[in-house]
Design a protein around this nucleic acid. Structure first.
Lengths: 332, 332
DNA sequence: CTGTTAGCGCATTCAG
DNA sequence: CTGAATGCGCTAACAG
């Protein structure tokens, strides 16, 4: 691999001059600049990023910690982050936190020791206090999918309570009153927020929240199937089910169809997340959007603006869910 | 951030000694080792990876180029890669190639200039020759989902022709003879291989491959829907459809159901990939497995073994597809 | 505008 | 077993 030194010799200039044309932040005469450029390309010179990082104390890489890399969410989110950042010539280094406090912290340490210029975190197991403390360190952080009042200017999040409210409100407005709710695991903030929205909608319509009609799932298909099996065993007159994720809704619907129930004729469903797949099944799934990709994009923009001083980008961090009416819910 | 120098002063030893205990490849007396460890710990010392990389010419990071980060495949694959590598204390740096030659090459250059110790590539737009040349360079590469004879020891792949054969053979063995085929885009190798397998099965049963019953899709839901719409418009007595991806199968089934056709009573389907979602829809989708996650895992093991000299791991690179019989296909 | 000179934090000779 | 010295490839003052 050719080094900056080889280039300087071939071009007949000093080492510093070569560095200058690379970073073109200082004036270099057009003539010498061209000499250098020619030398670079006849040597096939590629700068060594590692050395640049060490010397400049800027690694041009940003670390991303997500709960998991698979599933319908993180892919689109990572796509946005990678695209935005790479077009600005920044690297993306990833680590999975697996919703485990220990692993999330390890991932963060890992990325910091790698000299990341900033961290984008979609973490759910570490505490607010830990993150607040972290935000006071030297490596800037931005949070996706989490709202912490004390550092709200670093949060990119979805109003999940509103989303939960909207889902249930949709069923209510269709005339349903016996509405079951399949929630995500309660240790997750977004699951709690969505449930709160559900309860709020119920209360606003002067109905009583029946804990028996609430089942704690796990956001996955199987959890939805288990939940539905349980709800059906109650022998209650349920006419609508609000699910805190599209995956759970799919699992739940599958159970109903297996038992000979017609969706939406016998029982209505609404999901949450608006992942691509359920838009293609029968019935098509009504849902609430969870623009996780847009949030990834926004987090990347935040980093570009706050860390790399790209003044031109705007950052807006609170996202509002939207209702997508499709075929899985009908008038009661 | 404390440096190795700070540690050496506190421990009352030389810089080199500290370095030695970190890398513990040279003998250090237990007493001094303990002094150093204590010093590290009271300073909260974390080695600077960047500096280590520059000095050792080993970045402990491996680059991964995938076509896309979203969709049902790359997530699970990335999960395996990240998990395997991180447990060996290696970093994963990602770049998306977007199935575009220019972008794939840029991604590769990008990762090489970052000093990656090895590259894991799931690329489809660059040529075999380019990859063969690349494999002769200084940065080791391993290919996922691609078989190139000249560098087969660097390939981790699925026998797609066999998979295509198995899918169609399943329909044939159920007695179907009017079988349509919805393929992936022909510029993709796996799409071509699967089609070849289909044709082989057809031929083996002394049937004729009817080009009219073959539609080139795009591997996505919408492509399957478009394909089915076209096939139905032919007014041919099709009783079974083999799809080169589960996503296309889902799109195609949706169209059938919309038109009042019963699956599998009126028409049978089989997909390819065995992605999680269609196992939860109605009817559950029969399919051929595409163990992309296992392949990711294997590629990571290859790197560990070949690049980082972990002798204990075994590498086996040719994966065989498996048939998953579920509810979308029945006797003709 | 350009060259000289120090480091960045660490691994690695080479002596001792 | 340990310390001193050198350099990885590059950036960033500082002079000129």
């Amino acid at each position: 691999m050719a080094t900056i030194y080889d280039v300087s010799v071939l071009a007949g200039v000093s080492l510093a001059t070569v560095s200058r044309v690379m970073n073109n932040n200082t004036k270099v005469s057009e003539k010498t600049r061209q000499k250098v450029l020619d030398a670079m390309d006849s040597l096939g010179y590629k700068p060594n990023n590692i050395a640049q990082s060490l010397a400049s104390n800027c690694s041009n890489s940003v670390g991303v910690v997500v709960s998991q890399l698979d599933g319908p969410f993180y892919g689109p989110m990572m796509t946005q982050i990678e695209t935005s950042l790479r077009s600005a010539n920044k690297h993306v280094i990833i680590a999975a936190g697996h919703s485990d406090e220990q692993q999330e912290k390890e991932g963060i340490d890992f990325l910091m020791s790698r000299g990341c210029d900033a961290l984008i975190l979609d973490v759910e197991a570490v505490s607010d206090d830990y993150l607040i403390k972290l935000s006071k360190g030297t490596t800037p952080i931005v949070l996706i999918n989490r709202y912490i009042e004390a550092i709200k200017e670093r949060c990119v999040y979805l109003d999940n309570e509103l989303g939960g409210y909207m889902a249930t409100d949709h069923m209510l407005s269709l005339g349903h009153t016996n509405i079951a709710y399949i929630s995500g695991p309660m240790y997750k903030l977004d699951a709690r927020d969505r449930l709160r929205g559900h309860q709020k909608a119920i209360a606003e319509h002067n109905l009583l929240f029946d804990p028996e009609l609430w089942y704690e799932g796990n956001f996955r298909e199987q959890g939805g199937a288990d939940a539905m099996t349980h709800l059906l065993s109650l022998n209650k007159p349920i006419t609508a089910v609000v699910c805190a994720s599209d995956q759970m809704a799919s699992g739940a619907i599958a159970v109903c169809i297996e038992r000979g129930l017609k969706v939406p004729d016998d029982i209505s469903f609404i999901g949450y997340d608006n992942i691509p797949f359920p838009a293609y099944i029968t019935p098509t799934l009504s849902t609430i959007s969870n623009p996780i990709d847009d949030m990834g994009h926004m987090a990347a923009r935040w980093v570009l603006k706050q860390v790399y001083n790209h003044q031109e980008v705007d950052v807006d961090s609170c996202f509002k869910p939207e209702l997508y009416v499709r075929g899985s819910a009908k008038q009661a």
